[in-house]
Amino acid sequence: MGEIIQIVILGLALGGVYALMGSGLSLVFGVMRIVNLAHPSLIMGGAYVAYWGFKLYGVDPLIMLPVAVVILAATAVILYKLVFEREARSAKYSEMTVLLTFALAMVVEGALGTAFTNTQRVTSPDYATDAFFIGDVFIPKGQLYAGMVSLAIIGALALFLKYSRFGYAIRATTQNREAAELLGVNVNLVGLVSFAIGIGLAGAAGSLVSFVFSFYPSKHWEWIAILMSLVVLGGMGSILGTVLASLILSVIAAFVGTYFGATWSTLTFFVALFVVLMVRPQGLFGEKPELA
């Protein structure tokens, strides 16, 4: 029993981090219909911000988090203006845009790799290797903090979307971009801001990831498939769905990892992705936001 609780707790903590990694992706898809395959590489960027903040100046990654958010959000604004603005205008999913984000992922990976090499890194504040003990169950502080901060950030995001006027505009745009535009929403601005928020979340996730996993630039390919499984399972564009999918899949992956070995725990996500695609052939993307 103790072992099972242990696994569930580890899974949930990790799931919290994955949820934050996935929710930015989900938000951007919802508003702009862009499947941003570059999202994980930008999370990697956030991880490097936190890593160097700690390594060079000894700043705690949790304090570097807002810095990473700002840096990544600013990057997002530039990317949006240079690359995505005209893509966003078509407001329709297109293969070309997916390929574009795929290419962007390579650019980011190549840039990070050139700057920082492919050496494995991990940020190591004291709590990253420390743990709480409750009876037999141990809870690594690093994962616990990361998971809790993640869920807090997602909670704040949900409140913003639900109650602010801008959040209202974002939700309207997600449901029917054309309609929102015709009712007076400046959808281009909504696109820009949502993109900046989404990538800002990637920065936040990156700072947390930096002390939970070891990372190196090309690792983002592994994350892409994991994050995609979360957002597909949760229903692309639905942040709540992404959070639930993250928590559930991470717990399952933790069980698989414990009983079959760590290699196979990542396979859980990919297999889950396939199963979802098979069970719902139209995919969870298949739901059309427009009225027929």
Partner: peptide
């Protein structure tokens, strides 16, 4: 037969997942 039941982004993603599965 399995992956072509979906189109658009789902298909692209399934193809990426395929590589990950085969790599493992």
């Amino acid at each position: 037969l399995i992956t072509l039941r979906v189109r658009g982004p789902s298909f692209i993603i399934s193809s990426l997942a395929l590589v990950m599965i085969f790599k493992i």
